[in-house]
Simulated scan of single mutants.
Amino acid sequence: MKKTAIALAIAGLAVASAAQAAPQANTFYAGARVGWASFHDGVDDFKSADSSVKSNSVTYGVFGGYQIIDNLAVELGYDHYGTMKVTNPDAKADKFTNHGVNLSLKPSYDLGNLTPVLEGLDAYARVGAALIRSDVKAYEADGSKVTGHSLKVSPVFAAGLEYAIPGFTDLAARVEYQWINGVGKDQKWSGNDGADFTPDIGSVTFGLSYRFGQGAPVVPEVVNKTFTLNSDVTFGFDKASLKPEAQNVLDGVYGEIAQVKSAQVAVAGYTDRIGSEAYNLKLSQQRAETVANYLVSKGIAQQDISATGYGKANPVTGSTCDAVKGRKALIACLAPDRRVEIAVKGTK
């Protein structure tokens, strides 16, 4: 199979702004979050007829990140993960407080790729670990205070949505659910017969971040591509049906088109100068429609593609074949004129 000649021209003209949910690649961001945390696993061991447990509390923190590529960032944070309190009628409230640093990877997906309605909205996950200091402050019946603390690395899992605030390309809001598995390991304060109290902490937070270097509007790049398919791989002489090898070529063209957003495709068919003008117009139209129909079968919307036959207009051979003698030799010489051009316009 002979190679298809493909001409590409990409113009970087900015004509409209668009919201991008995730920060741009190779940029930094920073922010703060606040929300509500809840302790789980082992909490009920502290409940009795004389005491009650408050397992929910405020959580807050700061975070910063580096966007490695469009869909992956690394994020560092420092958080107060919450305080659990046990209230006793004859003593001050016992407290179990947690704070520390966390490091995680943050893969994301731009939901605007699914539908324009979700433009600017990003779904993401965070997976990492937190080094957490757990502080215990408990009171005995005689009023004496017992304190202790521990450091423990705990796995962190989170999922959330992030939204680029319209009109402020450097600001983004996020809502997130986070789960920390097993914090603390101090035996001085436990309702489970001296065993370590290592609860899980779930939290829902709202955050706001600032993206450095993204104050300017994000603009799409206008794309113009033209694919020229010669007759040696598309159609035989005086034919409008695709050669078997043409399908592989058109599959490659479709792969290029699929990467263009809001693509508008114009298919133009041409013939050589042999034959009448009316016949050539009809043949070129049939060739253009054959290619357009194939691309539609691959996934291009019917309303986004057009097919037009131009007959023997705009020959690329010029006067090169004027001195050629013999029909077979002339047909071979005029082969470049028998072509189909696929013009694609859209944005990246």
Rank of each mutant, 00 (worst) to 15 (best):
F46L: 07
A158W: 02
S306D: 09
P155D: 04
N280V: 10
S203W: 01
G299C: 05
D79E: 15
K92E: 12
K85D: 04
R338H: 06
A9C: 08
G82S: 13
K3D: 12
G182Y: 02
I180V: 14
S203G: 01
R273E: 10
A11P: 10
A130P: 01
T271I: 08
A16N: 08
G236Q: 12
H149N: 13
A18G: 04
G64M: 12
P244C: 06
A141S: 14
Y78I: 06
A7Y: 14
V291G: 00
Y78S: 01
K312E: 06
Q302K: 15
D79I: 11
V156A: 07
L13V: 15
S241E: 15
K225D: 04
T290W: 10
R211F: 01
G182W: 02
G77L: 11
K312R: 11
Q303P: 02
Q187V: 10
G148M: 09
A123P: 00
S134A: 06
G167P: 14
P155H: 01
G318V: 10
V146G: 07
E140V: 05
L334F: 07
S284F: 04
N280L: 11
D272N: 15
T198C: 05
G236N: 11
G64N: 02
L114F: 12
A123R: 02
A158M: 05
D70R: 14
Y294N: 08
A301K: 08
V153I: 15
A25K: 15
T198F: 01
V146E: 06
L121G: 01
K298G: 03
F168D: 02
A11V: 14
A138K: 14
Q178H: 03
W36F: 07
P217M: 05
L330N: 10
A263L: 03
D41S: 09
D44Q: 12
F206I: 09
Y81K: 10
T87E: 13
F46E: 03
H40F: 05
S134G: 04
D41T: 09
V183Y: 02
W189D: 00
S52C: 00
G65C: 06
G31M: 10
Y139A: 05
E75P: 11
Q303N: 13
K106H: 05
A335C: 09
G215C: 00
Y163H: 02
D186M: 01
G12T: 11
A138R: 11
I201D: 05
S150E: 09
D79H: 14
L8N: 10
Q187T: 13
I331Y: 11
G275Q: 12
A11Q: 14
F46A: 03
S319H: 08
G120L: 05
V183D: 05
L208M: 07
N26H: 13
G255L: 14
V136T: 05
V296R: 12
S241R: 11
G160N: 03
P155G: 00
R174L: 06
A30N: 00
S52K: 12
N224T: 05
A16C: 06
A129D: 04
F197I: 00
L121T: 03
L229P: 06
A30L: 09
S17Y: 07
L161Q: 02
A288I: 07
N56W: 00
G275F: 12
G61K: 10
P336I: 14
L111M: 12
R339N: 02
A159G: 15
N102D: 15
L334S: 04
A258K: 14
A159T: 12
T27I: 01
D44V: 09
